[in-house]
């Protein structure tokens, strides 16, 4: 027979003191991630239980909020993402547009119009509705960066991918979100579309490569 050493007694009150204050933030992120209040509640509950079970592995003095978000994100990926993806395939249009210009000349013109303070006038609900249409892999990093204010490095750690992947997902996720809102504005007649010229391909890597050589 074989056995294992019992874990040291975990301190529940210490756990609660450290973690419960982050419940609102975790729930807010879970709601935008799952887009379902019921799933969000389940996800947050799973996250706290899991965090408590792994509490011994939390290194005191490190960022507990990022640690909790890492657990929540992992739990989401393992348990809910498939469900959410299926729902998204069913009810959102395919994101097949190549977003090759970060801000089109058309947008610059339309949005510089003094009458067109469109993004400033947007309601929170309208922005949230547009965010919910962003595919989940991109939405996840937008939530972590723009709602929770995590750094690229923290997001990479939370999501478990390289910083470069975080940058490109964030870039693309934001462009999709801006595009949805821009199209919403046109649809609502708030701004009028103009014909745009084709844009050049974006190229961060080659810039940094060249910079390194000349440095």
């Amino acid at each position: 027979m074989f056995g294992f050493k019992r874990k040291p007694q975990r301190n529940r009150s210490e756990f609660e003191t450290l973690t419960l204050e982050h419940m609102d933030a975790l729930y807010g992120a879970a709601l935008r991630l799952t887009r379902s209040p019921k799933d969000a509640e389940d996800l947050v509950q799973d996250t706290f239980l899991k965090a408590f079970r792994f509490f011994d592995s939390f290194e005191k003095g490190t960022n507990i909020k990022a640690w909790l978000f890492k657990i929540q994100t992992n739990t989401f990926i393992n348990k809910y993402r498939r469900k959410v993806k299926e729902r998204e395939v069913a009810d959102t249009p395919a994101e097949d547009v190549v977003l090759d210009r970060f801000v089109s000349s058309e947008q610059v013109r339309a949005l510089q119009d003094p009458e067109g303070d469109f993004f400033g006038k947007l309601l929170s609900d309208e922005v949230v509705e547009a965010l919910d249409q962003v595919p989940v892999d991109f939405r996840m990093v937008v939530i972590l960066a723009d709602i929770q204010g995590f750094s690229y490095k923290e997001i990479a750690e939370i999501v478990g991918c390289p910083v470069g992947t975080v940058m490109s997902r964030l870039f693309r996720g934001r462009r999709i979100l801006q595009k949805h809102l821009y199209e919403y504005a046109i649809q609502e007649g708030i701004i009028s579309p103009e014909v745009d010229e084709a844009g050049d391909a974006i190229d961060l890597d080659s810039y940094r490569e060249r910079r390194k050589k000349t440095a």
Binding site: Y27, A29, E41, V108, L111, V127
Partner: peptide, 25 residues
């Protein structure tokens, strides 16, 4: 372009943060 980008970004970010501000489970 970058002015428009910053402005869109800041507006959207502010609205997203509003949406969770005071949001309670």
């Amino acid at each position: 372009r970058t002015t428009t980008l910053r402005w869109m970004h800041d507006s959207i970010r502010a609205k997203l943060q509003d949406s969770v501000d005071g949001l309670e489970p």
